[in-house]
């Protein structure tokens, strides 16, 4: 499947009503923006600003309270099954099935899509190989290191060649070297495969590395800035980082745009 289409976010609001008499939590106040097909987008924001909630809405696991999210004109929650084989996500934890070997974990989405067994095995092997795990295809998750497990999870996302690729702090909890290497792999793969990619992170380096667009989320769930790295007036990475940090700290857009 090539191209899921543009992502339209209009008047999006999400409120969680805690069961048991607790107060309702506004996870997303209001979001409006568009992501074009093939964009590489990083979302940054402080903890609890609704990044994961937004991603879960994109995946179709949560329903918007108000407003609308559409991918190529279809809503992920309402047209749930329409997105079969179209999108894949990498989560903060690897979320591998512990009873399946690395290879069988990567095969899983192809099994769900009903692909022929030999095709499943061939494609899963190819992706494990590409992520440097050819020797570990028969290992169970508990026999792999955290970084290796996350690479298996990456292979599992890439194996269906999704038009839309989502990553939720997928590399944050690993050590710096591993995390940088995986991030680079993710970005390179997403770019060469021509996927639309959305990467949620709270590390600015990661966001800047993506080299496309950075959406800065304030709390609760509102857009502070929509930065196109190609047209943002700052030239230095340090300056850009300073801008973003100031916005996150004050939880407000910059008063005067950088000159």
């Amino acid at each position: 499947m090539k191209g899921a289409g543009a992502i339209d976010v209009a008047g999006l609001r999400k409120v969680f009503r805690h069961t048991g008499g607790g107060e309702a939590v506004v996870a997303i106040e209001r979001l409006d923006f568009t992501i074009r097909q093939g964009d590489m987008v990083a979302i940054v924001g402080q903890t609890g600003c609704g990044k994961s909630t937004f991603l879960n809405i994109l995946i179709g696991l949560e329903r918007p309270t108000e407003g609308r999210v559409a991918i190529g004109g279809r809503t992920p929650y309402g047209d749930f099954d329409h997105f079969r084989g179209t999108l894949a996500a990498v989560f903060q934890q690897d979320r591998l099935l512990p009873w399946r070997t690395a290879l069988d974990n990567v095969r899983l989405p192809l099994e769900l899509l009903g692909r022929a067994p030999d095709e499943q095995a061939r494609r899963a092997r190819a992706w494990l190989d590409r992520l440097g795990l050819a020797r570990f295809e028969r290992a169970y998750p508990h026999e792999l290191s955290g970084g290796m497990r996350q690479r298996v999870a990456l292979a599992r996302a890439f194996v269906i060649e999704p038009a839309l690729l989502l990553a939720d702090e997928a590399f944050g909890h690993l050590d710096e070297v591993t995390s940088a290497a995986l991030r680079t792999t993710f970005i390179d793969l997403a770019r060469t495969e021509g996927h639309t990619a959305i990467l949620v992170t709270h590390q600015l380096e990661e966001a800047i590395d993506m080299g496309g667009r950075i959406l800065v989320f304030g709390r609760p769930g509102a857009l502070l800035a929509d930065i196109d790295l190609h047209s943002w007036p700052r030239t230095s990475v340090a300056g850009l980082r300073g801008d973003i940090q100031r916005m996150l700290q004050s939880n407000a857009p910059l008063k005067e745009p950088p000159a």
Partner: peptide, 11 residues
């Protein structure tokens, strides 16, 4: 978590 992971693939 595992259920969400699997559901993202539309089983």
């Amino acid at each position: 978590d595992l259920r969400d992971m699997l559901r993202s693939f539309r089983p």
